[in-house]
Design a protein around this nucleic acid. Sequence first.
RNA 1: CGGGGCGUAGCGCAGCCCGGUAGCGCGCCUGCUUUGGGAGCAGGAUGUCGGAGGUUCAAAUCCUCUCGCCCCGACCA
Length: 572
Amino acid sequence: MKTSQLLIPTLRDDPGEAETVSHRLMLRAGLIRKVAAGIYTYLPLGLRIIRKIEQIIREEMTRAGAQELLMPIASPAELWKETGRWDYYGKELLRFKDRHERDFCLGPTHEEVITDLFRREVRSYRQLPLNFYQIQTKFRDEIRPRFGLMRGREFIMKDAYSFDLDEAGAKVSYQNMYDAYTRIFTRCGLTFRAVEADTGLIGGDVSHEFMVLADTGEALVAYSDQGSYAANLERAEVLPPTEADTTALLPLTPIATPQRRTVEEVTAFLQITPRQLVKTLLYRAGTESVAVLIRGDHEVNEVKLARLLKVTDVALADPETVQRLTGCPPGFAGPIGLQQVRILADWAVRGVTNVVIGANKADTHYQNANLDRDFTVEEFADLRNAQAGDPSPRGPGVLTLARGIEVGQVFLLGTKYSQKMNATILDEHGKERLAIMGCYGIGVGRTAAAAIEQHHDDKGIIWPFPIAPFHLHLLTVSQSEKTTSTATRLYSELAAAGFDVLWDDRPDRAGVKFNDADLIGIPFQIVVGDKGLADGIVEMKIRRGGTKLRVAPGDLVAHIRTLCSETDPPVA
RNA sequence: CGGGGCGUAGCGCAGCCCGGUAGCGCGCCUGCUUUGGGAGCAGGAUGUCGGAGGUUCAAAUCCUCUCGCCCCGACCA
C-alpha cells in the first residue's frame, strides 16, 4: 500500500496524555486515537497489527482443534442471574435496558453465553471434547483505564471455552491451550513467562497467566532463579519458616511510643529492625472482622487472606472500626487482650521472639512480646507476599521478583458454570453428567502494546516481523523518474514475492520519511534514491540495530528472504 | 471512591496570579526555490479559550456549579 493513500497521522511531539512507552508510541506512530477514556479507534496501521496477531491466534487455535464462532456483545440479564454474576460482577459490568425495559449488559467475558449454547445444542459425550473460541470486542467498565490499549474499557479479546466429560479430559484441554498460548506468544516475538495465577472473578481451581516481562507491567511475578516455579505475586506461596528462634524470652514491657504508628516510625523510634516488630492489621471480611498478625518487614497478601476466609473480598477496617475493636486509634493495635475478633497470623510470626507489638492503647507498644506466653493465635497460614530471596515453594532456587504484563490467562473451571446453568451431557451409560469446563483469554490489543514495551528504542517501535503492520517499508527519497520507476518495479516484485510492502511515496524530504519510518517500526526499510541508483544499488536498513546494506535492485527479493530467515523472531 | 494535576487552533504549549481586541512553535493551504536524516522565503486559513451560571462597563483571566481527561492509590481476566 502507499502512504499517500493511508491515514497514518504521525506526531512529532509526544501527546501529553500518554506516559508509558507503548501508549505514547501508538499515538505518535498513528496506530490509535482515543475516543473516550479507555476507548480507542484503531487507525489503519494499528488495525493491521491487530489483524496480524489475530491471524497467528487463529492459526494456533485451529491447530489446537478449537473452532471459531462469534457471540453477541450484548447479552440478557437472565443468563447472568443464573450464575449469580449479575450481582457478583459489580460495576465493571456495563448494564443497560432495552426499549422494553429488559436488563442487558455488554459482555465482559462469555462463560454464560457459551454455556447456554452448549446446554442447548450438545447432548452426547460423543461430541466431546469441544473447544469454541471467538475474537470479539469486550467491554469492562474498569475503575481506572490506563496506558492506552494496555487497560482499556473496550478491548479486543480472544476467548475460548472448552467442554469435557471428565477431569482428565479437561486437563488435556487445558494443557492443549497452554501449549497453544506458548506457541502464539512465541510467534508474536515476545519474551514471556507462564505463571501460576489466582482465579479472580472467573473462578475455578487452576490457572496460569502469560506474562510478558516488562518494567511497565502492572503485575508482579515471583519466579525461581534455578527451578521452574513461577507465580503471580498474588498467588506465590511462601513456605513456613523451618528454623525455630531459640533466643531466651525477656519480660513483657509496655513502652510509650507517642505518635509513632507506622512500622517505620516505631522501629526508628525504638531503634529496632522491622522484623523485630509484629504488625496487627484489622480487616473486614464480609460481615466479619479479623486481626492479622504479620512481621513488620512483610506485607499482607489480601488474596491469600480472602481465600483463607472464603470470602471474595477483604479490606482494611476503617479507623472507626479499629477504634471500636481495639479501643485505640489505628497504629497501636496488638493481639494482647484483643477479644472481639479472631486472630490470624502469618507463619513467620511463629519464628520470632521478643517482638514489639501494639498495646491497644494510644501511643503505647509492648516490647518483648512472645507467642503463647503473652498472646495466642487462632490459626497460622501463609498470608504474606513472597519476597525476593524467599526459597522457592517447589523445586530448587530462591525467588526473584519481576514486573509483567498479563497478555493471556488460562483457567480450569471445573463445573462452576455447568452446574449453575445445568449444562449436562449424557455419558456412555446414558447418565447425565455436568460438563467440565475451561476458559482461556488473550488480550489482543494488550499483546500489541506489550510487544512495543519490549521492542522499541528512542526513535520508535521495532516490530517483531510476524506482527509488523508491513514487512517492508519502501522509501523513495527522490522524485526523479528513475527512482519512481525503480520503486514501482520493486514494489510489485516484492508484493509478488509475498511481502506486505508499505511504499512511502509522499513527496516529502528524506529526513521526514526516515524519521516516520523509524517511528512506525517496520522491520526492513528499503531506500530508493538517485544517489544509490547512480551506483546501481538501493539501500536496506534493518530497523533493529540499524544495520545498512547496499543491494542491487535485482537481488533484493532473494536478499530479503535470507534476512527474514535470519531475523529473530523468524518469519512464521 | 480518596489524593494530585490538566482542559486555550490538528499536535505541543504560553497567556490566568494582576480582567481591557487570543498568542508562540510545529503541522495545514497557496506560490517560488530546495530535495539522502524532521528545508527556506513570501502569503494565507484555522479558536463556542471544555460547558453553564454569576460578578463586572468589560471575563481565557475572578466566583459557583458542572463535564471530560491524565497520574498515584484502592480495584482488576
